[in-house]
C-alpha cells in the first residue's frame, strides 16, 4: 500500500492524524528550522518525544521537517534540531540544505534522511546526486512534474519518491522562490514563512476589500464576498491588457483521482499539505485518503463520494501532474 504522509501542526493534530489512519505524520520544531514557522504551531522538544511515542505505539511513523536553509552564523540551531529529532526517536528527518544534509550524514548516519520538496530535485540526475552524496532514501518531488515524468524518474532512481496529493499548491519550484521576501522581507527559505500574516493588511475602499501584502495589493474582492488569504502567487494582477491571476488561480491541489496513476508511476508515498490546518480537517482528510489508498491497493474503485466531499465548494486542480497546467 502507498504510505500516507499526513500533516501535524500540533500534538493534537498528530494524535488526530494517527487515529484517522495516517501511516506517517510529518511535523517540525517551533522555530525557524521548519517551513511552516507560524505562531502557535509546531512542537517543543518534549511534545516531539511524546508525539513520536504516541505514533509508534499506534504503528505510525514520525518524519521531522527541518527544511529551511540554515542562516549563516546560526547553523547550530539547525544542527540541534537534527540531533533532537534523532533523540526524540523520529523515523526520518526531511532536509533541503546541502550543508545540513552533509552534517546529518556525517553526525547522524543512522537517522534516515528524506529530501524535502524545498530542495526541488526535479529529475533523476539531481535525485541520484542527493542519494549518492548524502545517502538520501526518499525524495519529495517538486510540484512541477507530470505523472509521466514521475514514472520516468522512478525508472531511473533507486530511492523512494513521495508526492503531494492534497492541500495548498505552490506554483513555483519550491525552495527556489523569493517572491515573499521581495514583498515582505520574509521568505520560506530563510524564515519558514510565505506571505506572512504579519505583513497582511486589509482596507475597505468603496465597495471593495483590498488585501495587501507588504503594501502590494494582492487582490480586491467585493465587500461581503469571501476574500481568500493574500498569498502572493495566487493574487490578481495586471499585465499589459490582461487582468487576472497571472500565476495561479486561488485553487488548491487535489490529485485524489490520480492515486492509481501515481501508484503505477512507482510513487511510494502520498503527502497531504496542511500543517496549519485544524485537527478536525486533518482527521477528515486523512480518513478519506486512507480509504482511497486501501481501495487502490486492493484493486477496488476509489470511494468517490467521500473524496468529493473534501473539495466541495472549493476550486481544485491537479496542478502540474496534468501537462496542460503548464
Amino acid at each position: 500500500m502507498m504510505e500516507l504522509v499526513c500533516p501535524a501542526g500540533t500534538p493534537a493534530a498528530l494524535r488526530a492524524a494517527v487515529q484517522a489512519g495516517a501511516h506517517a505524520v510529518y511535523c517540525g520544531f517551533a522555530d525557524e528550522t521548519n517551513a511552516r514557522n507560524f505562531p502557535g504551531l509546531n512542537f517543543s522538544r518534549e511534545e516531539m518525544a511524546a508525539g513520536v511515542a504516541h505514533a509508534h505505539a499506534n504503528g505510525a511513523k514520525v518524519l521531522v521537517a527541518i527544511n529551511t536553509f540554515p542562516r549563516a552564523g546560526s547553523e547550530d540551531l539547525w544542527h540541534r534540531a537534527v540531533a533532537d529529532a534523532e533523540s526524540a526517536g523520529a523515523d526520518a528527518v526531511i532536509l533541503a540544505d546541502l550543508g545540513l544534509l552533509a552534517h546529518a550524514a556525517e553526525h547522524h548516519p543512522r537517522l534516515r534522511r528524506h529530501l524535502s520538496v524545498q530542495a526541488a530535485a526535479a529529475n533523476p540526475d539531481a535525485i541520484n546526486f542527493y542519494a549518492e552524496a548524502f545517502g538520501v532514501r526518499r525524495v519529495v518531488l517538486p510540484r512541477v512534474l507530470t505523472v509521466e515524468e514521475i514514472a520516468a524518474i522512478n525508472r531511473d532512481i533507486d530511492v523512494e519518491t513521495e508526492v503531494f496529493v492534497f492541500g495548498g499548491l505552490c506554483v513555483m519550484a519550491e525552495g527556489r522562490c523569493s517572491l515573499s521576501s521581495y514583498a515582505t522581507g520574509r521568505s520560506p527559505n530563510m524564515n519558514g514563512v510565505c506571505s506572512p500574516a504579519s505583513h497582511v493588511a486589509y482596507a475597505e475602499e468603496g465597495d471593495e476589500l483590498a488585501a495587501r501584502l507588504g503594501g502590494f495589493t494582492i487582490h480586491r474582492t467585493p465587500k461581503g464576498a469571501p476574500a481568500p488569504y493574500p498569498t502572493l502567487c495566487k493574487g490578481a494582477f495586471v499585465s499589459g491588457d490582461q487582468t487576472g491571476h497571472v500565476f495561479e488561480d486561488p485553487v488548491s491541489l487535489d490529485a485524489t483521482r490520480l492515486i492509481p496513476a501515481l501508484a503505477k508511476a512507482g510513487v511510494s508515498a502520498l503527502k497531504i499539505e496542511g500543517r496549519q490546518r485544524s485537527r478536525a480537517y486533518v482527521a477528515e482528510v486523512v480518513r478519506s485518503f486512507r480509504a482511497a489508498v486501501e481501495a487502490q491497493a486492493a484493486g477496488r474503485p476509489l470511494p468517490e463520494a467521500t473524496l468529493a466531499k473534501l473539495t466541495e465548494g472549493q476550486a481544485a486542480t491537479t496542478g502540474a501532474y496534468a501537462k496542460i497546467w503548464r
Binding site: R143, V144, L145, V171, M172, A173, R176, C177, S178, L179, Y182, C233, S239, G240, Q242, V246, F247, E248, A320, K323, I324, W325, R326
Partner: peptide, 21 residues
C-alpha cells in the same frame, strides 16, 4: 531585475492563452 522564482508553468504562454508546448 532579480530572478525571484522559477516554475514548471510558462507565464508568458499563460498570458497569451497558449499551452506551454
Amino acid at each position: 531585475r532579480v530572478p525571484l522564482a522559477i516554475s514548471g508553468r510558462c507565464y508568458h504562454a499563460r498570458l497569451h492563452d497558449r499551452p506551454k508546448d
